[in-house]
Write a protein that binds this DNA or RNA. Structure first.
Length: 531
DNA sequence: TTGATAGCGTC
DNA sequence: TTCGGAA
DNA sequence: TTCCGAAGACGCTATCAA
């Protein structure tokens, strides 16, 4: 545990990529064999399921440190991170320190899943006693997740790439999919033969960048393929050794959630991996994302759902064909093979994302305006000659979404942020006019620069009216333009509407609160958007 | 049994 | 998903 | 150019109090 705590300290004290890479490389070349797969799991989004919840941790900390609850809350708001707050508040135990390794603590935590609350409490309190402040922080983060120390999946891939001398793209594939840190070592996982050991193993997804300034800078239109950008969830379908697997972008195995795909187990040719989008359909037309949402986290699908909103897989790329990894072939070749595969499979659950024909960028610009009519949220542009790459790479795949909506609104509440924004009011609620009243309709994450955030923070501190816990009401004076991707009816909010991806577009210092948009404007937008 | 809420996935 | 900041 | 942290809405599940 000391070793890992030391690593976390180095990582969190530095913002320099090379320093972090070196620290990780060194760790992976020298650390405890049983700890290593756990570190990879923790830093690549494979944290074990949480077995102790936040309110329990909070209560036990309050008891141990003998604090009034309000003081704990006050500390938490200042520190901005539960695990760190607790580590700082716990008294020094003065006991003999523990020498258990990282994997011991993680395995013990996992064993608590079904344990009675009293056992959990005893274990956590014991751990807090045995560990010093730095280790306690790490221990708490093992439970609550999210180290926020500037290391994520990609940096892990790069560090392992250095430590084991394997190219990042290959390595990314090796560590993809399902593996258990208790059952495997890094040496096994990163062995060249291991890529084929698991029939379910997915390929890392290739992701697109947003096209900011239109396509003309991309060169000749004939070098590019355009498709609609579908508003579903990204998926990968695998047929190997007679088995069918469906993966989500977050590398969750979601095969069982979509019984519609079960027939593909027989229909798909052997040794096939398809990249595409999971969508619900009605009358041959894709349904809004909201209808898919009811399927994502659900355990049992109702018959009604299967009838009214059946799921199909809209395929747009072929990664494996006849058992061969074909990601290095140019897109147009992969596309041809994909078309053959879809035709051969011949099942309504497997569709082909149509290619949009266009002869000039002007024509494509016109077509983009029709995106909503197609049930899509814009265009995808893919270079014909491009291989299927790993992760987000600039150059060959672009998403060109339709322009967002915008609304002018006034800030009415402010709240402090978390982590590196724990000191600042960065969390704002906005309102539109309804007659002479103001109606809150959204929160928006800050699209402001640090400089603007400081300015707003300063202003909030001088113009707050009332305090409700962490929330301050402020004089309704500051006007912002809010951008968002979509609008839907909602019961959650007083305004009756909910926005998709709301963010601050710009600070309208030129506008007064009298000039902002109204609730009626939002309602009209809602009608219009519903078509 | 109902209702609220934390947690976690999707975008 | 979005965004700004840092390397 | 790439990566990271901080942030939004939604729906479902599990859990716990009324």
């Amino acid at each position: 545990m000391q070793r890992f705590t030391q690593l976390v300290k180095i990582l969190s004290n530095s913002t320099k990529t090379n320093e972090k890479l070196e620290a990780l490389r060194h760790y992976f070349t020298t650390a405890d064999t049983l700890d290593k797969p756990w570190v990879l799991a923790l830093f690549s989004g494979r944290r074990p399921k949480r077995t102790v919840n936040s309110s329990q941790l909070k209560q036990w900390c309050i008891k141990t440190a003998n604090l009034p609850e309000w003081l704990f809350e006050e500390c938490y708001h200042t520190v901005g991170d539960l695990g760190e707050t607790i580590a700082l508040l716990l008294p020094d135990s003065g006991q003999q320190l523990s020498t258990h390794p990282l994997h011991y603590w993680l395995e013990q935590l996992m064993r608590l899943e079904k344990a009675p609350e009293a056992d959990k409490q005893q274990f956590i309190l014991q751990a807090w006693q045995e560990l010093d402040t730095g280790e306690r922080f790490v221990f708490n983060k093992l439970i609550t997740g999210g180290f926020r120390i500037g290391v994520s999946q990609q940096m892990m891939v790069n560090a392992l790439s250095l430590a084991y001398d394997i190219p990042p793209a290959t390595l990314s594939h090796m560590i993809s999919g399902n593996w258990d840190p208790r059952q495997t070592t890094l040496e096994t996982l990163l062995h060249a033969d291991n890529t084929n050991a698991d029939d379910s193993k997915p390929y890392p997804f290739y992701l697109a960048y947003a096209l900011e300034d239109g396509p003309t800078a991309l060169g000749q239109p004939e070098d590019w393929v355009a498709e609609w950008k579908w508003d579903g969830i990204r998926g990968q379908i695998i047929k190997r050794n007679g088995q069918l697997f469906v993966w989500s972008r977050g590398e969750e195995l979601i095969t069982e959630k979509f019984p519609e795909y079960a027939p593909l187990q027989d229909a798909l040719p052997e040794g096939t991996v398809i990249d595409g989008e999971i969508l619900t359909y009605a009358n041959d037309f894709p349904l809004p994302f909201q209808s898919l949402q009811t399927r994502i986290g659900r355990k049992n699908v109702t018959r009604k759902q299967l009838q009214e909103a059946p799921v199909a897989f809209l395929s747009y790329d072929l990664l494996e064909w006849q058992g061969q990894d074909i990601r290095d072939k140019p897109l147009q070749e992969r596309r041809q093979l994909l078309e053959q595969v879809v035709e051969f499979t011949n099942h309504p659950a497997l569709r082909l994302s149509p290619v949009i024909t266009f002869d000039s960028w002007e024509r494509l610009t016109e077509l983009r305006q029709q995106s909503r009519d197609q049930g899509s949220e814009g265009l995808m542009l893919k270079r014909r000659s491009a291989p299927y790459q790993v992760g987000r790479k600039r150059g060959d795949w672009w998403k060109w979404k339709i322009d967002p909506f915008t609304i002018d609104a006034v800030m009415i509440y402010a709240q402090k942020g978390h982590g590196r924004r724990a000191d600042l009011y960065t969390d704002y609620t906005f309102a539109v006019k309804d007659g002479d009243k103001l109606v809150p309709f959204t929160k928006a994450y800050s699209g402001l620069t640090d400089k603007e955030i400081n300015e707003v923070d300063n202003w909030v501190k001088r113009h707050s009216l009332e305090k409700f816990g962490p929330v301050r009401t402020v004089q309704p004076e500051l006007v912002f333009e809010i951008a968002f991707e979509g609008i839907a009816a909602s019961n959650r909010h007083k305004s009756g509407v909910a926005l998709r991806f709301p963010r601050i577009h710009r600070w309208r210092k030129d506008k007064t609160p009298e000039e902002i948009n109204t609730l009626l404007d939002l309602q009209q937008l809602l009608q219009q958007y519903k078509g």
